[in-house]
């Protein structure tokens, strides 16, 4: 067993609770993404697993061993930082060899292992270059090789792609995933980018204000946000404030669903723009709305729609296939319908 389990991890910075009783189990061989806005505690949690921060309360276990009091250098971890953090005085080869050298491994073993890793991260031809002579993507692959060199049980990645440009980012993301699966190593991946988290992770832990909001597989998280924060943070959603009437919330002519427990007069309904159906004229199902603006996004076109519910104007985004949206003009009156199965309501 070489998963990671964090139990009740709490970390205070003065009066601020950076982590508030966080408990997460990462299974063996799994890649878990910690997703959240900056300041949500995701990096602090990763640093607690690495031992670079000491939690005030709670424990961190790697495999079956309690690591809470173990210094960083004795933990079976490999770490990749956002800023690469390669040693500028060492070549790519020497950087990858570093964790082995400090452990005094025999020279032949070091050299064989480094060759193997250079191949794994495709840096064999750059092996004798210095960090400032290689690109950002190559630097991060070198950092990945260095992190994996001592055969750690857990790979920790702290926003490894944030410093790279968009094209390299996508490619390296898939590369990291390929290598992680090939090696079969347990990994924790910190990111603030939801699409990155969903693309790479087996499971995503959404964090907010030092707490875990939801842990779910990417598809489940996308379809069924458990909390208002998850709904807001993952996927771009419509958030519409609606009045609760007879225990129901809804948009007249479209959906009516049971109001969430604890709602007090009003509720917040979330649904995604691609679940909004738009039909021309006033014959189709749904609510009357006016097309305020059309934004062409390529395959889809986003319509900014304004309708009325309970005497209040409500604004909704609807995504349509662009070919279909071509037929609709700005200023036109349309019918807007939302599938109730895709609406998630939360109390305000």
């Amino acid at each position: 067993m070489s998963g990671v389990s964090m139990v009740g991890v709490t970390k205070m910075y003065g009066q601020v609770k950076a982590l508030d009783h966080v408990s997460i189990d990462v299974c063996e061989g799994e890649l878990l993404a910690l997703l959240g806005p900056s300041g949500c505690g995701k990096t602090t949690l990763l640093r607690c697993v690495a031992g670079l921060e000491r939690p005030d309360r709670g424990t961190v276990e790697i495999g079956d061993a309690d690591m809470t009091a173990v210094p960083t250098r004795d933990r079976p971890i490999g770490m990749v930082f956002q800023s690469y953090a390669l040693f500028p005085n060492l070549t790519v080869r020497q950087n990858i060899a570093f964790p082995l050298e400090v452990r005094h491994r025999p020279r032949t073993e070091v050299s064989a292992r480094v060759d193997e890793l250079l191949e794994l991260v495709h840096l064999t031809s750059q092996a004798d270059r210095y960090p400032k002579q290689i690109s950002g993507g190559q630097a991060q692959r070198c950092a990945l090789g260095r992190a994996l060199a001592p055969n750690p049980q857990v790979l920790l990645l702290d926003e490894p792609l944030s410093a790279l440009d968009a094209l390299v980012r996508g490619r390296l993301r898939d590369e990291i995933r390929r290598i992680q699966q090939l090696v079969g190593i347990t990994a924790i991946y910190v990111t603030h980018d939801q699409s990155e988290a969903m693309a790479i992770a087996d499971r995503v832990a959404v964090m907010n204000a030092g707490r875990v909001e939801q842990i779910a597989a990417p598809a489940d998280l996308y379809e069924m946000p458990a909390t208002q924060f998850s709904a807001k943070f993952v996927g771009s959603r419509n958030a519409v404030e609606l009045a609760v009437l007879d225990g129901k919330v809804g948009i007249p002519g479209s959906f009516h669903i049971d109001a969430p427990g604890g709602s007090n007069g009003h509720a917040l309904a979330f649904f995604r723009p691609e679940d909004v159906q738009v039909s021309r004229g006033n014959t189709g199902p749904g609510m009357d709305a006016r097309v305020e603006l059309k934004v062409f996004l390529g395959a889809t076109t986003r319509l900014h729609l304004v309708g009325e519910a309970d005497g209040q104007p409500i604004a909704i985004f609807g995504d349509l296939p662009s070919r279909q949206a071509r037929l609709i003009d700005e200023g036109e009156m349309v019918r807007v319908d939302v599938d109730p199965d895709h609406v998630h309501a939360f109390p305000i």
Partner: peptide
């Protein structure tokens, strides 16, 4: 940053000062 990295690589404080 370099010092934290070296620590995560398993280096002791003396090794960090000497090698990094």
């Amino acid at each position: 940053r370099l010092s934290e990295t070296a620590e995560a690589c398993g280096a002791s404080p003396m090794q960090i000062v000497r090698l990094v």
